[in-house]
Amino acid sequence: MRQTITCIACPLGCRVEVEEKSQGEKKYLISGHKCIRGEKYAIEEITNPTRVLTYTVKIRNANLSRLPIKTDGVIAKGLLFSCIEEIDKIELQAPIRIGDVIIENVLNTGVDIVASRSMNAIKI
């Protein structure tokens, strides 16, 4: 099987071809990359693509109605939308400090969802 991956390890954006071999010493035949990082990235992207999710969550009692959050590490690309569904179930109350854990070990990934900014409560 052959796949083409755009490498994002640097701004060059090499189109890396990855061919899965059924036999031989190396499992993958990689071409089109200009450096070693391309090879590593391409294999990862084929075998276990991961992403950081940055999103927002509903917050009350603050000047804004959404608080930005992120996964504190990468999660499997295939879990992004399920992760969003989890976050959409939540409603926070200000104040929140940057780094506060919003969801611990989201979807059993071992990764936490954390606040990516502080937000004060509205002064009344």
């Binding site: 950081v52 940055t54 930005p68 992120k70 940057i98 990516s116 900014r117 502080s118």
Partner: peptide
Amino acid sequence: EELTGPEYAE
């Protein structure tokens, strides 16, 4: 390190 916009600002 890789930060989000609000983190960078903060």
